[in-house]
């Protein structure tokens, strides 16, 4: 590139950064303190960019979520489920040699952890509630917005469980193939999974209607709904792919693509908690924020410090945190000045 109009990156103007030296696996913001927690491939959890360093797992952290109240819930390849707050880590469960690959928590006091074929449910105090079996390894978990239902993806589809059910019988959503990342729509009416075959699959829960969303050049690893659930933003293409969940969509509707065209794979997406704005991270390290309606792009961080592996908004939407495979991490401030 030449000329004097090189993009100015928000990171230089309003960001703080750190080099953690290990793969940034996931980022979550604490529900009480608002501090970002970075889960890393060296088994540590970093609170903020220069705060506490907690050795939460022996191998790598595999999943991080904001815990029900204060602190962070993590799963690791040491088979443990931990919660960390105020500089202290507590082991909630040890599932042995099976990795704890996916965790999630809800403020109503529900924690879930996937380990092998089992989905374990715990309450906010750490009491084990139930362990739910699946036909194959659980490859993704999600809790609905109300904290009532839990969804787990696996080979052949997904299973929906009521956390408080007296008798545990899942609703099976079936679709041939291997399903990974999973989420509920914000209103709880749809469940979406990302598949091995570079496609998404969705189910409308009211009538079991299937939705197939195809055309991706790569596997979707990251997806999220915009705040009011109008758009599903996804990674797996050379831009942000957005599926409309309004006006009869996504069935029969083409997706909208924004922030594309460089031939670099989008690896992470994170929807702003309030506005129809999506943050995206790319395989070359580029981070940007895009407004859906206008397609306008705000460059956040330049390429060059490793593929973006984690990306998250503060629940109030004024901070964006991201991290890369090479251990670069940053927090960028979007609050008005």
């Amino acid at each position: 590139m030449s000329g004097t109009d090189a993009p100015r990156y928000l990171l230089d103007l309003r960001g703080r950064q750190a080099d953690f030296g290990a793969w940034v696996v996931g980022i979550a913001f604490c529900r009480e303190t608002g501090a970002p927690g970075f889960g890393l491939g060296d088994g540590t959890l970093r609170i903020g960019l220069d705060g506490a360093v907690l050795q939460v797992h022996r191998g790598a952290v595999l999943s991080v979520a904001a815990d029900c109240a204060r602190g962070f819930l993590t799963g690791g390849d040491d088979g443990k489920l931990c919660t960390s707050s105020d500089g202290l880590t507590t082991v909630l469960a040890d599932y042995g040699r099976r990795w704890v690959e996916h965790v999630a928590a809800h403020p109503e006091g529900l924690r879930v952890a996937a380990s092998g074929r089992m989905l374990h449910l715990l309450d906010g105090q750490g009491v084990a509630l139930k362990s739910l079996p699946h036909p194959s390894t659980v490859a993704g978990v999600a809790i609905d917005a109300k904290g009532k239902r839990v969804a787990a993806s696996h080979y052949g589809g997904a299973s929906i469980w009521f956390a408080a059910a007296r008798e545990d019988k899942p609703r099976r959503l079936e679709w041939k193939g291997s399903h990974g990342a999973i989420l509920f729509s914000p209103d709880g009416t749809h469940v979406i999974t990302a598949m091995q075959e570079n496609a998404l699959h969705g189910w409308r829960l009211s009538d079991g209607q299937h939705m197939r969303m195809t055309g991706y050049p790569a596997k979707t690893k990251s997806m999220c709904f915009t705040a009011k659930g109008r758009w599903l933003a996804t990674s797996g293409a050379d831009g942000i792919v957005l599926w409309p969940f309004f006006g009869g969509g996504p069935m029969g509707k083409a997706p909208t693509e924004i922030a594309g065209g460089d031939g670099v794979l989008c690896t992470q997406v994170a929807c702003h908690p309030e506005h129809e704005v999506v943050a995206a991270g790319f395989a070359d390290g580029l981070v940007l924020v895009a407004e859906i309606a206008s397609g306008k792009i705000l460059p956040v961080a330049p390429p060059g410090r490793g593929g973006v592996s984690a990306l998250a908004w503060h629940p109030q939407g004024h901070l964006l945190a991201f991290g890369t495979e090479e251990g670069f991490a940053a927090v960028v401030d979007f609050s008005p000045r």
């Binding site: 030296g21 290990a22 793969w23 696996v25 890393l40 491939g41 060296d42 191998g59 790598a60 595999l62 390849d77 990795w99 690959e101 194959s136 390894t137 490859a139 080979y155 041939k176 193939g177 291997s178 598949m195 091995q196 075959e197």
Partner: peptide, 28 residues
């Protein structure tokens, strides 16, 4: 599991895909 590409001989090990992905995240 079978790949959804219409070929019944295209079977892969789903567990290996996940495990290798996980191993790559470790620092050492």
């Amino acid at each position: 599991f079978e790949m959804n590409n219409g070929c019944i001989c295209c079977t892969v090990r789903g567990d290996l895909i996940r495990i290798i992905g996980g191993l790559m995240k470790r620092r050492e």
